[in-house]
């Protein structure tokens, strides 16, 4: 925690994510209007005192829609990444610890999955299932676990040669015990970095899907579909696209800053150098 306060950029990222998190948690308190309330008297009005970020084609308040949209964007980030981390850790740790044939099979399976460009894989799957919020989270999660699996496998390959693993085996520990108690806790660092970066990525994928009209379906507001609503009126009402765009951009940036800071924190060499410099 101390480290974050030393690193200013990471701190900014952290504060921004906290604000968005507050948006999501206290949306009814923070939103100035009902995000679904149609106001025919103020259609496409620019930023003003009553609508600080303007209104859309139906007169709905953009700020309130962005506040409610943060619920969708953040939860998609968390849950999609949660799914991919879960699957990635499961396959990666089994491949790394048991090695041999199991490892070969899992690694070939990962190679096959990586052959398909993720985004097009998602498009293909969405063509088959209904694009509900849960389905979108699941699809993003199910198509992005391979990197994490590889990461954790590589960590475990070196970790499992350490003496504390031998000690545990001598005391009668089974594979599942060793993986859960020793290997995963020691290999989780780089995964956290990757997961933090992945949250930004998941938000971006959701926005792209919504922008294409195959993501979160209206009237539920998500940053992506607010942006899409503004597409047709880009020339007359810039605030419809610019504001949700800024929120997407800043959130992804914030996640990346956090992820990078976490990486520095966990990379012993760089941190060691920094300690020397600061002395």
């Amino acid at each position: 925690m101390k480290y974050f306060f030393k690193n200013r950029l990471a701190l900014i990222g952290f504060i921004f994510i906290t604000i968005i998190l507050a948006f999501a948690l206290f949306a009814p308190k923070i939103a100035t209007h009902n995000p679904a309330a149609i106001d025919t008297k103020s259609i496409l009005s620019g930023p003003s005192n009553s609508h600080i970020l303007g209104t859309d084609t139906l007169g709905r308040d953009i700020f309130s829609r962005i506040v409610y949209g943060s619920r969708i964007s953040l939860s998609i980030g968390f849950i999609a990444v949660g799914i991919s981390v879960g699957i990635g850790i499961f396959f990666g740790s089994i491949a790394g610890y048991y090695g041999g044939k199991i490892d070969s099979i899992i690694m070939r399976f990962i190679d096959i999955c990586l052959c398909f460009p993720t985004f097009f894989l998602i498009l293909a799957v969405i063509a088959l299932v209904e694009p509900s919020i849960f389905n979108i989270m699941a699809i993003i999660g199910l198509t992005s676990w391979m990197g994490i699996a590889r990461l954790i496998r590589a960590e475990i390959l070196t970790l499992k040669e350490r003496d504390f693993i031998s000690a545990s085996r001598i005391m009668g520990a089974r594979g599942s015990w060793i993986i859960l108690r020793h290997l995963i806790p020691n290999a989780i660092g780089p995964v956290l970095v990757s997961a933090t970066l992945g949250m930004g990525g998941a938000i971006l994928i959701e926005s792209s899907l919504s922008f294409l009209g195959i993501g979160v379906q209206p009237p539920t507001p998500s940053w992506g579909n607010i942006l899409m609503d503004g597409k047709s009126t880009l020339g007359v009402a810039w605030w419809l696209t610019v504001f949700p765009g800024i929120f997407i951009l800043l959130t992804v940036l914030a996640y990346n800053l956090l992820g990078e800071a976490l990486r520095d924190l966990l990379e012993p060499r760089i941190v060691a150098n920094e300690r020397i410099e600061s002395k």
Binding site: R162, D163, F164, A167, I170, A173, R181, H182
Partner: peptide, 30 residues
């Protein structure tokens, strides 16, 4: 009832575990 003590005490203790958990592991497994 067998055990081992290794050469490198930096590698033989799980860095993510408290001493309490390191010492009790064998008892919990037994």
């Amino acid at each position: 009832e067998k055990q081992a003590i290794f050469q490198d005490p930096y590698s033989s203790l799980d860095p993510k575990m408290k001493v309490r958990d390191i010492i009790s592991e064998g008892l919990i497994l037994k």
